[in-house]
Design a protein around this nucleic acid. Structure first.
Lengths: 362, 362
DNA sequence: CTGTTAGCGCATTCAA
DNA sequence: TTGAATGCGCTAACAG
């Protein structure tokens, strides 16, 4: 990695390194019009590229923003990543990527790695977990984040705050109204279907999943329904599939027959995210069931790639890209124009999307 | 970003910075067992995190790997990114992300930015283009890459080499047999359908698209068929949709009636990637047509998220993640164990997947 | 085996 | 305005 240095450029231009630095980078000070051109030409002819590492060392700021996701191939995170990337570009920063599979231990590692690289800010997109097994690592993650913030780092978390993290400054949360939206969804679904509901949830302790489950139950109750049964499964397509297989058996066995309905009348299924919903739908189909005839199904997220899925999936639309942008902007250095940086949780709006997969066939 | 420094740790431990450095990082030299512990403890109590920028400056190597994609939210690139990320982790490196929308100009910028950050290597995943309008920028990109390699950087390109780039060393290509696979696909499709074929391609000059088109035509000819008509469109879902609308009109108008077939007998459609195929399918459906009854359709890539799409999409499966891994590994520093780094193009295997969307209904 | 010295490339004080 | 000096945090030669 031997490239030409600022000193070389300066020498070629017959000026001091300091001057060269001033013209080549956005220094507040104005270099002589004539000399500036000479320096620029020298730089050009040498193919000079400033060493960002050195700049960072000298300036104590790297222009780097770290992004933590569970899995970059998951369309949910990919969409958020796009938003982050977009905002980062606006701010002329580069994004460093880390994937963790949602393990708090790995997330802690990632934060440390970002800190080592002196990333100016960090965006954490994965769902937090409060599982007991993750307790220690969650604490370590929180400690690592606190330290990072204390050293001047900016952190934005999508969804829930990290358990136990309480950095006084530089800690932002882009809160997603999962619970409220899930409740809205339940209410709308209940209006069009008076049968039983079942929820396919993620592992217990996953905040995103738990919030959506809680919200859905709330909505059900608001609609005068009893709470739905909750099937726990993994938070991905195969989790949805597994749950779908179980439900298919149940449906084929003749339905629950509760609430005075004839048996075999189907089921209202709410999967806590689209990918799980698709998995469940695939399972039902594999078992010879049809949607929405034999089962109504809804997801959450409104993943773009899945919109062409048929029957069109009812879901809750979330502005994923926007969320990524918001999180990134929240970590931007405080505006120079005196505007107060607001540290209040940033709001995000979602929207219930009723589509074919939950259409009342009758 | 003020964190504790190595010097502070050393002072607290009562040793020299050099010694502290030796124990805290993987130096070849072994520090005294006793002293090592003292240093480690000091580091721990101070919450010391090495400054990677400084390390990079001193060692002339950053542990960074730059990844260039068109769009991280596109499942094709997301899958590759996952592979890159995985391999990077194995090599204890971090990935820097840049998205370019496929514009060679932006790619050049990205390469420069990576060079500035002193990334050890760069993986370029987007398709190359040979469009005349991109000529200058392609040349600039090539020049930038050459310079990067000349300075010791490692580059891996997925698919085609960058036009005009001819770095003697450190330039690797993970070649994807787009053409051969498309030919295979054509042959297999032609075996099950004796009607006409139409190709929905990307903009002219996009290598990936052009290769797949060429291969498909080749396969057709190998199967004794005449060349298919090519519809140009944008390389994404909406491009596929637009083309699909046109084709729907044509199909509804009664088919081409060529080759002695009765009119209105449908069409064999090959979209050069899955996302376009899905778009086209959506368009046909929107126009009241059914697949595979009214039109058979096949894509390319075998995007994971799209596998639950119905009717299941015939396509060519590509080991996207593996491609990402391969590219990343190709740029790894030459193995220390004397094994020669092989600079030959790395091969990748794909596989034709015939599914429901091209099933012969009769 | 440990400590000392000297940069890595750049930004930024300070004088001039 | 420009140039000379200093330090960012760390590693790698040296010397002890």
């Amino acid at each position: 990695m031997a490239a030409s240095t600022l000193t070389e450029v300066a020498r070629l231009a017959g000026v001091s390194p300091a001057t060269a630095s001033r013209v080549l980078n956005g220094s507040a000070r104005k270099p002589g019009k004539d000399i500036a051109e000479r320096v620029r030409q020298a730089a050009d002819s040498l193919g000079y590229i400033p060493n960002a590492q050195a700049q960072g060392l000298a300036k104590s700021s790297s222009g780097l923003i770290g992004l933590i996701v569970h899995d970059i191939a998951d369309p949910y995170f990919a969409a958020i990543a796009r938003g982050v990337q977009e905002a980062a570009r606006e701010q002329r920063r580069m994004v460093l990527l880390a994937t963790t599979d949602g393990a708090p231990g790995e997330e802690k590692e990632a934060v440390a790695a970002f800190a080592a690289r002196r990333a100016d800010s960090i965006v954490i997109a994965g769902s937090r977990s409060s599982r007991a097994e993750d307790g220690d690592q969650n604490a370590e993650l929180a400690a690592e984040l606190d330290r990072y913030c204390r050293n001047g780092g900016q952190v934005a978390v999508v969804g829930h705050p990290v358990v136990g993290a309480a950095a006084p400054e530089g800690y932002h949360v882009v809160s997603v109204p999962n619970q409220e939206l899930a409740a809205d969804l339940a209410v709308e679904l209940a209006a069009g279907w008076d049968g039983d509901f079942v929820i396919i949830g993620g592992p217990e302790g996953l905040f995103t999943s738990d919030d959506r489950i809680r919200g859905f139950q709330e909505g059900l109750s608001r609609a005068g329904r009893g709470p739905a049964e909750v099937l726990r499964s993994s938070f991905n397509r195969s989790g949805g599939y597994d749950a779908g297989i179980k439900l298919a058996a149940r449906i084929k066995a003749g339905g629950t027959g509760e609430r005075g309905r004839p048996a075999g009348t189907g089921l209202g299924i709410f999967a806590v995210n689209d990918v799980m919903a698709i998995g469940a739908a695939a399972a039902l189909r594999a078992e010879g069931l049809r949607i929405p005839r034999d089962a109504r199904i809804a997801g959450f997220d409104d993943i773009e790639t899945l919109r062409d899925f048929r029957p069109a999936l009812s879901t809750v639309s979330l502005p994923l890209e926007e969320i990524g942008r918001l999180a990134t902007r929240a970590t931007a250095p405080p505006a120079a124009d005196g505007d107060e940086q607001d540290y209040a949780p940033l709001p995000v709006a979602g929207k219930v999307m009723l589509r074919r997969s939950t259409e009342t066939a009758d």
